[in-house]
Deep mutational scan, measured.
Amino acid sequence: NITAAIYDEIQQEMKRAKVSQALFAKVAANKSQGWLCELLRWKENPSPENRTLWENLCTIRRFLNLPQHERDVIY
């Protein structure tokens, strides 16, 4: 289940792992930094009809659900 909290989790994970938006986007969703920036802007007004947005957030959720040491190896 995806909630608005995922946006904060993304920010916290980037700080914790000391990774850039570009690197996080690449490893978590195989996307660009610009894409992640755009995604983070949706926090203010996520559209329930935007299926692509929710699919991408689900992809990021799966990455964030990995154990921390696995995420660190991927970075």
Rank of each mutant, 00 (worst) to 15 (best):
N1R: 01
N1D: 04
I2P: 01
I2K: 13
T3P: 07
A4F: 11
A4H: 10
A4M: 15
A4S: 15
A4P: 14
A5C: 15
I6N: 01
Y7F: 09
D8A: 14
I10L: 11
I10Q: 02
Q11N: 15
Q12I: 07
E13Q: 03
E13H: 01
E13Y: 00
M14C: 03
M14I: 08
M14R: 09
M14Q: 14
K15W: 14
K15C: 11
R16Q: 11
A17W: 06
K18M: 04
S20W: 01
S20Y: 05
A22W: 10
A22R: 08
A22N: 06
L23I: 02
L23W: 04
L23K: 09
L23E: 14
L23C: 08
A25Y: 05
A25V: 08
A25K: 00
K26D: 11
K26V: 04
A28G: 11
A28W: 05
A28V: 10
N30E: 14
K31T: 14
S32E: 08
S32Y: 04
Q33R: 09
Q33K: 12
G34Q: 12
W35M: 10
L36K: 01
C37Q: 13
L39T: 06
L40G: 04
L40C: 02
L40D: 06
R41S: 12
K43M: 02
K43P: 07
N45Q: 07
P46E: 15
S47H: 06
S47Q: 15
S47E: 05
P48Y: 15
P48V: 14
E49L: 11
N50L: 07
T52D: 02
L53A: 04
L53P: 06
W54Y: 07
W54N: 01
W54G: 13
E55V: 07
N56C: 14
N56I: 08
N56Q: 09
L57W: 04
L57T: 04
L57M: 09
T59W: 07
I60L: 13
I60W: 01
R62S: 15
R62K: 09
R62G: 07
N65W: 10
N65G: 07
N65I: 14
N65Q: 08
L66G: 09
P67Y: 07
P67Q: 05
Q68P: 13
Q68T: 11
Q68K: 08
E70N: 06
E70Y: 05
R71V: 01
V73K: 11
V73N: 03
I74A: 12
I74R: 08
I74D: 14
Y75N: 03
